[in-house]
């Protein structure tokens, strides 16, 4: 019997609400807002209240998918990254740096987002960067 509440930060937006992910025997069961957090003082929005759901969602992608013959097929990270690199290069060469845009996520850390924009500007050479973390 392994019941625990793990304190973590909501990944949905930039507010940084603290919440507990409740788990029983390794499975997430509930989300509970942290009352002692100065950020959200025991409150959450609808997204925060349901973070435990997407983690375990059956619809969640665990492996990259690549469209082959019109069908999405599971592939290895190597294959997916190789494909992305070759395509990005191809597009950049054919249409220039500004033909590529980068869209980042609030579900990753600041550091990861920093890397993303760095990659966009330094490696590809575009300023077209946006994200969903502007709530």
């Amino acid at each position: 019997m392994d019941y625990r509440n793990t304190l973590t930060t909501c990944t949905y937006c930039g507010c940084g609400c603290n919440l507990f992910l409740e788990s029983l025997d390794g499975k997430l069961t509930h989300t509970t807002p942290c009352k002692t957090s100065p950020v959200n003082e025991g409150k959450l929005c609808i997204k925060g209240w349901n973070v435990h759901q997407f983690v375990q969602s059956e619809k969640r992608l665990n492996k990259p998918l690549l469209r082959k013959d019109g069908k999405l097929t599971e592939v290895s990270w190597d294959e997916a990254l190789d494909f992305t690199v070759s395509k990005l290069k191809e597009i950049k060469e054919a249409n220039g740096s500004d033909s590529v845009g980068f869209f980042a996520s609030a579900k990753v850390t600041n550091e990861e987002n920093y890397l993303m924009q760095k990659f966009a500007r330094a490696a590809i050479g575009t300023n077209s960067v946006d994200h969903c973390a502007r709530l």
Binding site: M1, Y3, R4, N5, L7, N18, T36
Partner: peptide, 20 residues
């Protein structure tokens, strides 16, 4: 009892806990 559901203080935060 097999366990007791109560509150625990850890790192300055209060959380529900199962004491076994």
């Amino acid at each position: 009892v097999k366990g007791v559901v109560a509150l625990a203080m850890a790192n300055g935060h209060v959380a529900p806990c199962l004491f076994q």
